[in-house]
Nucleic acid binder design. Sequence first.
DNA 1: TAGGCCATCTGGTCCT
DNA 2: AGGACCAGATGGCCTA
Length: 241
Amino acid sequence: MEANARERGRMHGLNDALDNLRKVVPCYSKTQKLSKIETLRLAKNYIWALSEILRIGKRPDLLTFVQNLCKGLSQPTTNLVAGCLQLNARSFLMGQSGEAVHHARSPYTSIYPPYHSPELSTPPGHGSLDNSKPGKPYNYCSTYESFYESTSPECTSPQFEGPLSPPSMNYNGIFSLKQEEALDYGKNYNYGMHYCAVPGRGPLGQSSMFRLPTDSHFPYDFHLRSQSLAMQDELNAVFHN
DNA sequence: TAGGCCATCTGGTCCT
DNA sequence: AGGACCAGATGGCCTA
């Protein structure tokens, strides 16, 4: 019985950690939780996608970003992620199949014209996609801002209570946000690009997104190129293995 | 009803 | 020796 209790507690700890992971990957929903395996897959894709942004130093279009997030995910999860990002799910899935994509009018396309990012490859183990078309670059952060300020009842941004400390840089230079009063998973928990960095837009918003000073030019001012390249190599090595 | 997901129990192995 | 970790087995719940 004691061994069973320990094992139960251990598994609960593991599940708590997975819940915390669910909160920091895109598409967090309290009502429609991602499965364990989908959470891990999405987290892997998310880390990879962010690493690519650091490596390339350019902002991909949201569609490409979401497609990379959804590589290898089940269709329900893909739909969930696409829905969370307010994409037209149908055109998005067509893009995943490799067919020619005609960007239907959607909240995304109507607001943010496609921006071609040929340097952004695809996650290891997945085929490449190139369904974006050249166009006018858009405000990358505004896109994420629109996502995370979504009022969708099913897809909510992480909720944070308690005071927020000034932003900090983590070991590889990714913009991060510290929360002094940890929720339930320890102190000094860092959040990456989950939080939009928008130059000069005033104080903290209601959605708890941190806004950068006006003289910042995310992501270029927020990481050392050489460091991010080295880190990218390490990450790639891990994923390829 | 089948399949997916999950929690729990349990025995084995490894580590301190 | 005791605890942590792991994997297989089992049964419950939910959905298509």
